[in-house]
């Protein structure tokens, strides 16, 4: 039998009612690992941590999902998860990949959104139902995506901003300029 902690798509990681202390410890260790590119976010806040389990042999199995398929941070995340578990005394650990359902920025927690804002990065607008499109629809829109709403400036809070480029310094960000205070800022692209 596998003791498990599972992550609801929009909820927080909640250990099962009678989780053993080891599992809680493993979960705390993994939960504290941060994204190497957005270090104000833990992997749980980013929504890429899909599960922490302890197998009967004592091996910890962590499931991560990639943000963008080409994001080079994933290899570092995997290594950091192993390091964190080793530091917590779990020598045997495996990090698995879950490709489906595909990650969406809607999975970034409220706490994560606040942390982004505090660090000068605009959190992404909510994507909604399209984020978890498992409807089996085979066609894709022939029309272009509507422009996402202009993100509020994380510096001065003004809601007016201009998109400079939809592609920013990392795979997940776009570039904006506040039209009130004039500061440039990064925003996490809704995906």
């Amino acid at each position: 039998m596998v003791t498990g902690v599972s992550r609801e798509i929009t909820g927080e990681l909640v250990p099962e009612a009678e989780a053993d202390p080891d599992l809680v410890r493993a979960h705390v260790a993994v939960g504290a690992v941060v994204d190497p590119e957005l270090p104000m976010l833990t992997l749980a806040d980013l929504g890429v941590l899909r599960g922490v389990e302890i197998e009967p042999t004592g091996r910890v199995v962590v499931t991560l999902t990639p943000t963008y398929t080409g994001c080079p941070a994933l290899a570092t995340m995997r290594a950091d998860v192993r390091l964190a578990l080793a530091a917590a005394g779990f020598e045997e650990a495996e990090v698995r990949t879950a490709l489906s359902p595909a990650w969406s920025t809607d999975w970034i927690s409220e706490q994560g959104r606040q942390a982004l804002r505090e660090h000068g990065i605009a959190p992404p607008a909510h994507v909604g139902s399209d984020a978890h499109d498992t409807s089996g629809s085979t066609s894709v829109d022939l029309v272009l995506m509507p422009r996402p709403p202009a993100p509020a400036c994380p510096r001065c809070g003004a809601t007016a901003s201009r998109e400079v480029s939809r592609f920013g310094a990392s795979a997940c960000t776009s570039l904006h300029v506040c039209t009130v205070c004039g500061e440039p800022f990064d925003g996490v692209k809704p995906l």
């Binding site: 190497p36 199995v61 499931t63 080079p72 941070a73 290899a75 570092t76 995997r78 290594a79 950091d80 192993r82 390091l83 495996e94 990090v95 698995r96 990949t97 879950a98 490709l99």
Partner: peptide, 16 residues
């Protein structure tokens, strides 16, 4: 795996 950012090669389908 951590010696340089992004250089870790592991199976991209590990656990799939």
């Amino acid at each position: 795996t951590r010696w340089a950012f992004g250089s870790g090669f592991d199976d991209p389908l590990a656990g799939v």
